[in-house]
Design a protein around this nucleic acid. Sequence first.
DNA 1: TTATTAATTAGATATTTATCTAAATATTAA
DNA 2: TTAATATTTAGATAAATATCTAATTAATAA
Lengths: 84, 84
Amino acid sequence: MQQLFKALNDPTRRKILEMLKENELTAGEIADGFNMSKPSISHHLDLLKRAELVEAEKKGQFVVYSLNTTILEDMLTWILTLKH
Amino acid sequence: MQQLFKALNDPTRRKILEMLKENELTAGEIADGFNMSKPSISHHLDLLKRAELVEAEKKGQFVVYSLNTTILEDMLTWILTLKH
DNA sequence: TTATTAATTAGATATTTATCTAAATATTAA
DNA sequence: TTAATATTTAGATAAATATCTAATTAATAA
C-alpha cells in the first residue's frame, strides 16, 4: 500500500500512467513526453514497476511499458472503506 | 490533486484518517494513538487539513478533528478513469 | 567487427519531508 | 491572577526524493 501511494505521489509518474492508458509505449517514447532526462524517466518507471502499476517487456533493444490497473483495486477499496 | 496524493503518502496520516472514520477526535486523542510527539501529529493534521481531508473545529481549549471524504471523490474519479 | 541506438545504473546534489525539543498561544481551573 | 492543560509554531536535523551528467549494458546496423 505504501509503495502504491508513494508511486502516485508524483505528477510525472501520474502523467506516465495517463499516457499508458491509451497505448503501451517504449521508455523512449515516454521520455519524449517530458522535458526531463531519460535517466530520470527511467527512475520513475522503475518506481511504477515496483509498485506494480506498470509492466515492462523487453522487445529487441526497446523496453515496452504497459499499464497494470489490477493493483489499483486495493486503493479503491481503501478509499471506499474510508467513505462508508 | 497533488496535495491530496501527498497527504495520503504517509502511514501515520492514513492511520489518522482511519481513526476518524469511527468518531471525531481531539488532537490529543489522536496523538495518544501514536508513539510520536504531539507537534509531529499536529504537523500531520495540518497537512490533512490543507488537503481538505479533515476539518478542525475549536471547542474550548480542544480542537476536534473530523473526516471529510468529499475530496476523495476526485481521487476515485482519477483512478477509475485510469482503469477504463 | 565497429558504430549507433535504447535503456539503465552509478554517483552527486539540491530540495523536501518527518521528526524532535523548546517556546508560544489560548483556554480553563484554582 | 496564577497555574495547569491543550495545541500549535519555530527552529534544527536526519532521511528520503527528484533530478542531473557520465558511464555501462544490450541490441541492431553498417
